[in-house]
Structures are given as structure tokens and as C-alpha cells.
Design a protein around this nucleic acid. Structure first.
Lengths: 327, 327
DNA sequence: CTGTTAGCGCTTTCAT
DNA sequence: ATGAAAGCGCTAACAG
């Protein structure tokens, strides 16, 4: 036998479907005797309301669509955890869609969200925002995280890579470093560019000469850069890598070459991956609070769904984590 | 203006809604001239089909409900990644629900899944399966992962924690360890219990005295346990933690205390989270292929939804990964 | 307080 | 090949 419907319950309790609906949804205008009869009938039939039908009728899905790229490890779980933190309190569920950097797949996923969710959180650093917007209803509330391109007035959330990188440089300068080399991230990557820009700006402000070595966000790249620095022989007392993995690669390479970290060369990264505090010496880095990004995105989206307009571009500021001290 | 509906498209294209439905869903019995008219109208109106209405009408949601406990980090992302791997190819989306070890919340989450998903994957090590079953439609296909209690003939997937833990202990004994302490997981957690049972059994078999410190699956817990071991001064040459994060916490604590790992104390974990091989020294552990669990659960569920019966209890056996050698 | 009825937006017979 | 109409399971006026 198929699942019991509200009509089956109504028949069994000898009332109308409207009364069943009222009774089960805790409306006050139902005699308690009737309410009890309905509850008994529902229990006996193993009845569960059909959330799909419910949301069609109420024009409210109580779900948020979440589009994420093929994220690895911590990052993925943290961002989802942050969303969940805000969602569960609001009675919202998360409909997940990983899009594997494939625009067609992403478009398809976006389309199938319509009518199942009340809003969308989209994180698609590799896909042009324009393309995405073409595949989602214009009236569907949405928040874009670190998007690529013009969000056309949609709500946005991004990480303030520029300011954060500048803050790191300022910190290094403050602790007496002068010859600070920047290991940049992959060319063309938006985050990498912003971090480099922050570095250059802060160096300029401090009256120091910038020196940039091109990297690629990998541990190996960090090691190679370290080798180049050693080879080069130019005076260097700090390396600021565009992410932690490069920083770690460089740090290990320096250590292997007998260079004291941080005594001779301080090494700083960006992200605060878990490994950053587990390695020794700890890595000074900028903590991007990933869970907060998810939480914030969801909170804003929930507000939009409740009718509050929002087309702001909000910037989350990473936090400086000092783990290398030259005492 | 609200979102365009199929009726708006029909009106604009001057055809019936039935034709619009047929045209847009690629049915063959539509004149191409008409089909084109419909597509144009849809485009001009910015029409996107309402997936919710669609699934009500077709009695098929093309979504899977996923109930997970409040998993930390890697584990969470890996299991979801595995599910996604199988789901996206089948055109299924994942509706996520984290239940925070709270049975009431879990029950509520389960109820709201009815009518939005075609099946359920439930992983709730802390909650009695009986309770869970009471809150889900009897006819809804479901796969239980590592559930706690009698699944009453429902499809099950579990990890052979008992045998795996025993294998780890045997390995430690084989490499000369004798005073092996077990850091247990959260009390009442089924996996934790099974791993402890495997430990005790293997110790008994080896004629060794078991020693268990209660943990909680967290890195901090591991660190605290290590402190207790150091404090305690009882001879200890190996620590087998019920999961990797505790093992890592303990390892770092030992290192900070100047204790050689693995020379003085070998540390072993369970799970093989990605971090386990990045940390130094590497962590000897039991590899639970987490992504595979998710993938397997989803594959079985998809089969059930397609009508294939399944009430099997499938056991996945973790694999020993040796990274610490005492040479 | 309770029942009747008209949708929510779509698919799918059943006619034509 | 196309249209009219009857649902899918529920909620929400609108009457009484």
C-alpha cells in the first residue's frame, strides 16, 4: 500500500481534510477531541505529511540551494557547517549541488533548483557569473560567494584578500623584517592577484622594495621558491606566501638548508589550514574563517527571503594568526 | 512580477499547457514549429520549470535525503563527496540534514524529508535506530550507515570496526609494542564501542593487559589523554586512538613534551583522514575509505528506488596503513 | 469550530 | 499532433 495521504487520515478520523491540516499544524481553532481523533488516525496509518505538496501549496520550500565547486577537505565541510549552523535554527534545509567546474552541469543544476528552494547560495570561482545568472530565475534570492565577474547587483560575499595581505606585511614590518619576498599564487587567479596587490601596496607604504616570486599554490612551488631565494643570495628576512601550502613547502626547504625559521627568515602563509598549527614551528598566517563565510551567506539569504532587500558586496576580513615570534 | 509559470508560456505561445510540457521535455510528438514557438516564449519570459510541482506530479523528487551527525572536518566532506560522485551521474540531488545528536531534532528532520526525497541515507551513530524508524514512512527506501540498534530488515552498511581495531593492535604487538593504551571515542557511540571491543579482544589474545583512557574523538581530547599518560608515568610504548584526530592531538602533545614518536611511543589512529599522511611523522592508521561508504550507500539506495529489493547488511573492512616504522 | 472548494504548477490520460 | 481536464497532496479562503 502506498503512503497514506491527508485524505486517508480524514476518512479514518471522519473529518474533513481541512480539519486534519489544521489539527496537525497546531492551529488553535480545533476542538481538542477532534484533534485527538486526527492524531490517532494519523499515527495508526503511519501518516507523514508530504513536504513537497506542502511547499507547493504554501509557495515556500524551506530549503536553500547550495552550489559549491569541487571543494576539498576542510574547506568544503567548514563552509557547509557554517551554513548549517544558521539554517537549522531557521528550519531550513540545504539542497546541495557540487558542480565540477563544468558550466553546463552547473547550469543544469541551477535550473533544477527552481521550485525546490527559496533561495540560492552560489560559489563558483571558475564560472563566469553572467553564465550563472542566465540559468537562474531573476526573482530567486541569491548570494554569491567569491564570484568571478559582475554579479549585476546581486548580493555578494567575498574575502578581503587585499587588506589581509597588507595586514600581514605590516605585521612582518612591525616585527623588524625589511626584506620581505612575496610568493604569489597561480597567475590569473583572482584571490592570488588580490593578495599580491595587498603585498605591493603595504610594501610601498612601508617604503620597502617589493620582490615577487611567481608560485602556484603548491607545496612544491614553495620549496622551489625557497631554493631560488637561497641561490639568489639577496638579503631576505621574510617570505610571505600567498597560501599556507607554499609557505610550508618553503619552510621545510629552508629548514633542510640549515636556515633558521623564523630566526633568519620568517615564513608566513595565508588560509590557516589545519596543518599550519600542527607543523613546527607553527606558521604565521591569515585565518580565513570558512565557517563564518557559510554562516554569513545563509543569514543574508534568509533575510532576503523574508523580504529584506540586499545587494551589498560584503567583505570578510581574515584574521592575523601569529605563530612565529622572534623573541 | 512573479515567476512565469507554464500557463504564461502557453498563453504567449498560443498553445495548450500540455504542449508546452511536451515541447520542453523533449517528447517526440510535437511539431517542430510549435516546439520552437514554445521555446522562444519560454526564453522571453525567463521561464524555468518549477521542480517542486514537477516532482509532485511525477511522484519522484530526484533527490536523496542525507542525515548525518555533526561530523567534523574531513570525514564529513569525504562521505558527502562519495555520495555526490554517485548522485550526480544519476541526476539526483542531495538534501542535507545535520542532526546534532539530538533525537528530537533528528526526528523532525526525518519527517520533513517525506515528500521531498525519493530515499534516505541515515547515519546516526548516537541515536537508536528504533527511534529513527518511528519517524520515517515505512515505505520510504533507506540505507542505514553504522546504525545503532536493530535496523529491522532495512538495508545497512557498516564498517567492521571490531576486526579493524583488532588488526591494528595485532600490528602494534607484532612490531614489538607491549604497553598499548587505547584512547576510546565518545561514550555511547557505537563505532567507539566496537573499536574498543576490538582492542580489548586483541589485547586479550596477545596476553596483554588492556588500558583504556576515555576520549571524545577530538584533537583536544587526544592532547589531554597524552598529558595524562605522561603524568601517569606507567610504562607506555604505544597509543591506539579510536580516531585520527585524537591520535594527532596526542602525537603533537607527545612531541611538545619531548617524547619521541614513534621511537618511545608509537601512535596509531583510525580513519586515515588526509591529514594523517601530511603530518610528520606520518600516522599509522586504519583506512576507512570514507568516500566509498558514501558512494556505496548512494548506489544501493538508487537501486532500491528503482525497485530492487535490498535488506542486506554490508560490511566494509578498513585497511591497515603503516606509516610509523621503528627501524 | 468545521466542511466545501479552489488553487499551487506541473504531467498525463483521454479525446479529437 | 494537439487540447481539455483530471489529478499529485496539501493549504487557505470562504461559508456556515
Amino acid at each position: 500500500m502506498a503512503q497514506a495521504t491527508i485524505r486517508d487520515v480524514a476518512k479514518k478520523a471522519e473529518v474533513s481534510v481541512a480539519s486534519v491540516s489544521r489539527a496537525l499544524n497546531g492551529h488553535t481553532n480545533v476542538r481538542s477531541e477532534l484533534k485527538e481523533r486526527v492524531e490517532t488516525a494519523a499515527r495508526e496509518l503511519g501518516y507523514f505529511p508530504h513536504a513537497g505538496a506542502r511547499s507547493l501549496s504554501m509557495a515556500r520550500a524551506h530549503a536553500i540551494g547550495v552550489m559549491l565547486p569541487d571543494l576539498h577537505g576542510e574547506f568544503f565541510s567548514e563552509v557547509v557547517r557554517g551554513m548549517d549552523r544558521e539554517a537549522s535554527g531557521r528550519g531550513l534545509q540545504l539542497l546541495l549541488s557540487n558542480m565540477h567546474a563544468n558550466p553546463d552541469q552547473a547550469a543544469e543544476a541551477l535550473r533544477t533548483m527552481r521550485g525546490r528552494v527559496d533561495g540560492l547560495i552560489v560559489m563558483a570561482p571558475d564560472i563566469d557569473t553572467d553564465t550563472l545568472l542566465q540559468h537562474m530565475p531573476a526573482t530567486l534570492p541569491a548570494v554569491f560567494i567569491n564570484c568571478h565577474g559582475d554579479a549585476q547587483g546581486r548580493a555578494e560575499l567575498r574575502v578581503d584578500n587585499f587588506a589581509a595581505a597588507a595586514e600581514m606585511v605590516a605585521h612582518l614590518v612591525e616585527t623588524g623584517r625589511r626584506n620581505i619576498v612575496h610568493l604569489s599564487g597561480s597567475a590569473g587567479n583572482r584571490e592570488a592577484d588580490e593578495r599580491e596587490r595587498g603585498y605591493r601596496e603595504a610594501m610601498r607604504k612601508a617604503g620597502l622594495e617589493p620582490r615577487v616570486i611567481c608560485g602556484n599554490f603548491t607545496e612544491t612551488g614553495g620549496a622551489e621558491a625557497a631554493a631560488a631565494i637561497i641561490e639568489d643570495q639577496k638579503p631576505t628576512d621574510a617570505v610571505f606566501a600567498a597560501n599556507d601550502m607554499m609557505a610550508i613547502g618553503a619552510m621545510v626547504a629552508f629548514r633542510d638548508a640549515g636556515i633558521g625559521v623564523p630566526q633568519q627568515i620568517a615564513v608566513a602563509g595565508f588560509d590557516d589550514v589545519p596543518l599550519a598549527r600542527l607543523i613546527s614551528p607553527g606558521l604565521t598566517t591569515m585565518r580565513v574563517n570558512i565557517a563564518d563565510i557559510g554562516a554569513r551567506a545563509l543569514a543574508r539569504l534568509a533575510d532576503m527571503i523574508d523580504g529584506r532587500d540586499d545587494s551589498e558586496v560584503e567583505c570578510l576580513r581574515p584574521e592575523l594568526i601569529v605563530r612565529q615570534t622572534t623573541s
